[in-house]
Amino acid sequence: MTALAPALLPASGGGESYQPPTPAIFWQPLFEVGPITVTNQMAWAAIITGVLSLVLIVLSKNAAVVPSKGQWLLEGVYNFPRNSVARDMIGTKEFKKFVPLLVTLFLMVLFYNLAGSFFLTMNPVTGKVGFPIALTLVVYVVYHWVSIQKMGLGGYFKHMIPPGLPAWIVPFVFLLELITYFITRPLTLALRLFGNMFAGHMVIYLFVTGAFYFLLQGDGILLQALSVPTFLMAGVMVIFEILVQFLQAFVFTLLAASYIAAAVADDH
């Protein structure tokens, strides 16, 4: 509920001017444990992870050939990242051992994102950059580890240089590949997710606070009437944001699978 407070306080300074939302709305401390500040996003991340884990365990515990409604729903959710991401990207030979990771990533990112559209939170967990970074680190470690296991440490760095290059260009290509594998990939994977969730939520807050400002502080009937389409636009943005939240979970998982697919491919 703390995330809703800025929307209910559209202006400061006696209502003289509109104060747009700032990134400070994402900083929502709850309490401190020593030097650690527990925030709203941390609490909801723990709740979502716990509830999601419990639901998956309960629905899969008594799996049967003829599925119950719960098992049927679970299988539908499970089969999407399994078949449309893991199998299609990694291939039928290698994909099965990575299915648990990719299904987990998809569900965690999806529900962390959806916290931004849930009335009690209205604040995506992934709107704080630390969470996308933590998820990206898992992918980062996995695809490097798989590559080194397959090719050896020396072979892993050697495969970054395409055969047949002139000797003078090899150092430049190798440097670019090192930057791609160790900096660009993880950086873009994390920042893409964070940026979309952060920006989308800021736009929603902009419309909501603007609508409240027109309604409560508007000078004249026309400005007050303008609050109605502004509120409607905020609702449209929430619906659009739900679509983006799903797409970003899919894209994050798809890119993770593509990196793992490159690591297990035979044609290095």
Results as ranks from 00 to 15, higher is better:
F240E: 00
L178N: 06
T49W: 14
V55W: 13
P162C: 05
G91M: 09
A265V: 06
Q245G: 15
G34L: 11
M151R: 12
F131K: 04
A234R: 05
S68L: 07
L226P: 03
E16D: 11
M197F: 04
F246I: 08
G14H: 02
P10K: 07
F118I: 13
N196V: 13
F95C: 12
F231S: 00
E241P: 00
L176W: 06
T136M: 09
P29D: 09
I148W: 04
W145S: 13
F131Y: 10
W27I: 15
L254S: 14
A3M: 07
G34Q: 02
L216Y: 03
W145C: 00
G91F: 10
H201S: 15
V238M: 13
V33T: 10
T253Q: 09
V251E: 14
G76F: 07
V146P: 00
L247E: 11
T92C: 11
G15H: 06
L54K: 14
P132S: 07
V38S: 02
F111D: 01
I183D: 03
P21W: 00
F119Q: 05
L8I: 01
G154A: 14
F98D: 01
G70T: 08
A167Q: 12
L101Q: 03
A11N: 09
A211C: 01
G127L: 03
V55Y: 10
A190N: 01
N196C: 01
A199H: 04
